[in-house]
Design a protein around this nucleic acid. Structure first.
Lengths: 233, 233
DNA sequence: ATTATATACTGGTATAGACCATGTTGCAAG
DNA sequence: CTTGCAACATGGTCTATACCAGTATATAAT
């Protein structure tokens, strides 16, 4: 075999991962251990790991170890609407936990985004969303009360889009989205099972019905490491 | 100085090249010589050279030596479609700084995204973009060499889209974008004047011509606090 | 002068050790 | 049971050295 040792080791590790020896998120043995296993020096082993990191197959963290890199959950913005469909489309089991669910007076910002008249009440709910029981996002949704009138809490929180269409004939038209990035606060980090300061993908979305009326204002914080948008334009 | 030795050496060599100590095509001293000059081991010196090779500033040839492979950086932008218009629309003065500009063999990932045949070369350029002299983003653009054949560096970096249409009749069709969030690495943080670990909005975009051929792959890292996408769907 | 060849030099790979900063963990003190 | 801290493990950097496979060049033979 002509290729350098570190390339051979690269291939062996890659094959082992593909064969399922380690799954996504698993920690692989430390550089020192692997160096012994492959009968090479640590520097040579590191070179093999390095090439795998560059390919996005592994991730390294000082003090913690080397891990099989995550495949991110992808959101296709065309076609799919809600979180539930999104997860199902990717073969993941969607679930969510409702943190709060209240009828209240809207904040100034909410009132503005939803073009509410004075005195209109809104439903505000906070949820943590999971894919295969892994926290993906924390979201705050604000909906004018008139939209969800007559719907049960379960219908609203489990599949709002489907219920709206089925029971009220309301079909979402377009949406305006604002995307930015920030760091996780202590509270959010706890809900999402990440560390304070970890990267957060922030999405604010105003959804409009086909007649142009805004019917939902959602602020979502996605775990940066576990989520990815895919947009076609 | 807190940064590793090899980063410091990287910076010194880069500065020396920009100062004109060596010109494009010149051979720089051998690794062994430079190791002595900088009072480090050859392996450490190699690491410094490695980062410069990755940026496309140097080229290495076994048996021959290491050569300067880049043209001088620093140029103002004036009329690019995406970023420039975006900044102007917000009343900000757009500008950019080219970090590297180099023809090379594509990485596996690039080759895949751009659907390249074997042996196809690509142009890769790294840029920092500013709005009112505040760093907004760091981007790496990869373009198949055949697309930019016969175009000047200025044409490519200042207004690729317009030039392609004017000189080659190539019109962009659609694009696929992937958005996620992560934390800033040491290197990127330096370019963007933020702290390591600060929130980064990551955008990967593949642009296609109207006939469906991919012609550009861009990876952009936006400073989370200074940037926001607005999407309508 | 031309051609072969030996030699020196280049970057590429590999070793075996060392120290560092950071992350994890287990144990002792409260 | 919680808290704080010490010990340990981990990847990141660095050293000093060695040998290899290509390249260039000086030297010797033609």
């Amino acid at each position: 075999m002509g290729s350098p040792v570190y390339i051979q080791i690269h291939n062996e590790i890659k094959k082992a991962i593909e064969a399922g020896k380690w799954s996504v998120g698993d920690r692989i043995p430390s550089e020192r251990e692997l160096a012994v296993q492959f009968h090479v020096s640590r520097m040579t082993l590191r070179q093999a790991i390095q090439t795998l990191v560059e390919e996005g197959i592994l991730e390294r963290f000082v003090g913690s170890g080397t891990f099989v890199a995550n495949q991110k959950v992808q959101e296709k913005m065309s076609g799919v609407t809600g979180f539930t469909d999104l997860m199902l489309a990717q073969g993941k089991q969607p679930s969510s936990k409702t943190i709060s669910y209240h009828v209240m007076s809207p904040s100034l910002s909410e009132s503005e985004k939803l073009k509410l008249k004075d005195e209109t009440q809104v439903l505000r709910m906070e949820r943590v969303r999971y894919g295969d029981d892994v926290p993906i996002s924390f979201e705050v949704a604000t909906i004018p009360l008139e939209i969800v009138e007559g719907l049960s809490k379960q219908e609203v929180s489990e599949s709002l889009y489907r219920t709206l269409e089925a029971k009220k004939g309301l079909v979402p038209g377009h949406a305006k989205q604002m995307v930015s990035a920030s760091s996780a606060s202590e509270r959010i980090a706890e809900y999402l099972n990440i560390k304070r300061g970890d990267a957060i993908l922030r999405l604010r979305q105003i959804s409009y019905l086909q007649d142009g009326r805004p019917f939902e204002y959602v602020r979502t914080q996605y775990v940066g490491e576990r989520f990815e948008f895919v947009l076609e334009k």
